[in-house]
Amino acid sequence: MKIKGMFRSARTIIILVITLVLVVIILRKTDLIPSLSDIFSARPVRLEETPMVVREIHELAQLVTMSAQDEVVADSVRISTKDIIAHMLPIPNGIINPDKLVIVGRGRVVAGMDLKAMKEEDVHVYKDSVAIRLPKASILEVVMNPSDFNTFSEVGAWSPEAVTLVKLKARDILVKRALDRGLLQKAQARGELLMKNFLNTAGFKKVSIQY
């Protein structure tokens, strides 16, 4: 009698388990319940469409003559409480990692001449000759967009402001490397050549350029 009752309850449990499994399978197939991985993984972030507002419009007259494309690495290490504790305790180096942020950034440094700085007296024309005083070449723009940055390593919680500082460090490195490679000198030489060619095409036989 007791054995018969045990069989009956075991059968009920098995039926219940099978029913439950079937219900779960059906609900999963119809996407009514999430999978285990769905519960613990991050959901894709939805970006809303927002309008773009024009704030300012500037008139420019910049002759872009050279650009330097480069990829740089910038990092920052921060000493936190866990590092101090790790330093005080006999824990071997490397077990507790310090807070660290390593960013790889691609960018473009654009150089040329700001022709808006030219005044009327900077151009002298005599018959088929022209003498022109050009502004010196300078960096006109440094382009490093969010799509140009890649977080190589992020240990610890880094605030948006701290991340921005590392990105600005990357931008400074980018500019320095471009300047070290003589970007401005090359931009100026090319600007001179382009202006000479343009003035020759515009009908001037003799062109003199000064700075």
Binding site: L63, V64, T65, M66, S67, A68, D70, K186, L194
Partner: peptide, 9 residues
Amino acid sequence: LALREMNEL
């Protein structure tokens, strides 16, 4: 670093 000649206004 790659330098590129340009001619844009």
